[in-house]
């Protein structure tokens, strides 16, 4: 294989987030409508590598992916050694709005997966006007705990290995091996307790069941895409949100909980029509 640079640019942004100085890692590619992408719990922006490299997308969209603080190449804030990381709905919403402002994004499209698929429901509920369209991947209003998350962060179990072990079955069995293991690698690399801290939002703090009926899926241009193999955010859960909000939902065949990372070409075949629709409405 001859060497080639991908069209992605990665940079560090120093900014104040939630009243604290942060050093944030951001990747982007393309030009046009800003498309701000949110990764899953315990992972990082590399999940969107397929989108950032797809000419059909980056010809018309400026794809922007940040690693949340504590994730990927973004640092935890100063003093992290004296606190327990716990993501909350309030902190997560503020983070997204403040990053969009710092980048001076003009009514971006926001797309998030899993915890990102949950927080975009909050954005559709509270901040719809700030976004041109909202795309939820693997969106569920709530997921009850089905295993003890204490296993994810203790010194006698490798945190990365157990996190990858927990999520491995959420990948569709038909996903190509290279993308399956790349997706797992991001979990294998995650910082200690970070997946667990994100799940605080996913399973405890971020229960939006009581507000679903207040979301106007049509006015907020809400699109929901869920993989059929996702047993965490189920197809039924997504279709229920669509029914109650008027959002447009698609159940994706042969995909699981990490569609953009576990099988990028298959996912992009589902995403392109949505992006075309959003572009047509602009």
């Amino acid at each position: 294989m001859s060497p080639r640079f991908e069209p992605i640019t990665g940079r560090y942004l120093d900014l104040t987030l939630l009243d604290r100085p942060h050093r944030l890692y951001i990747e982007e590619a393309g030009q046009g409508i800003p498309l701000l992408c949110l990764h899953t719990a315990g992972s990082d922006g590399r999940q969107y590598r397929g989108l950032l490299n797809d000419k059909r997308i980056i010809d018309n969209y400026r794809v922007i992916v940040f690693d949340m603080p504590w994730h990927g190449k973004s640092s935890p804030p100063e003093g992290y050694q004296n606190e327990e990381y716990k993501l909350t709905s309030h902190g997560y919403i503020q983070m997204i709005l403040e990053i969009a402002d710092a980048l001076e994004l003009d009514r971006p499209v926001v797309m998030g997966c899993s915890i990102g698929g949950r927080i975009v429901l909050y954005l559709a509920h509270q901040h719809a006007k700030r976004f041109r369209a909202i795309i939820g991947l693997e969106s569920a209003a709530h997921v009850a705990p089905y295993y003890d998350v204490e296993w994810l962060h203790r010194p006698d179990v490798h945190g990365g290995e157990v996190s990858a072990g927990v999520v491995s079955g959420l990948i569709a069995p038909t996903a190509p091996d290279n993308h399956r293991w790349e997706t797992l690698w991001h979990y294998l690399q995650s910082g200690p307790g970070i997946f667990k801290g994100d799940l605080h939002f996913y399973k405890v703090d971020g229960d939006i069941r009581g507000k679903i009926d207040e979301i106007d899926g049509r006015a907020s241009n809400l699109y929901l895409l869920t993989g059929e193999y996702d047993y965490s955010c189920t197809s039924e859960g997504t279709l229920d949100i669509a029914r109650r909000t008027g959002a447009q939902a698609t159940i994706m065949k042969g995909l699981g909980h990490f569609p953009m990372s576990e099988d990028p070409p298959k996912f992009i075949s589902y995403l392109l029509p949505v992006l075309e629709k959003i572009r047509g409405a602009a």
Binding site: H158, A164, G165, L184, Y231
Partner: peptide, 23 residues
């Protein structure tokens, strides 16, 4: 995990060797 989320599989006992070697 899909089986036990649907309530079809029960796991019990000392889960340390199970979780530490999950993959």
């Amino acid at each position: 995990f899909a089986l036990f989320k649907r309530g079809k599989l029960k796991i019990e006992g000392d889960l340390h060797p199970f979780m530490a070697n999950l993959l």
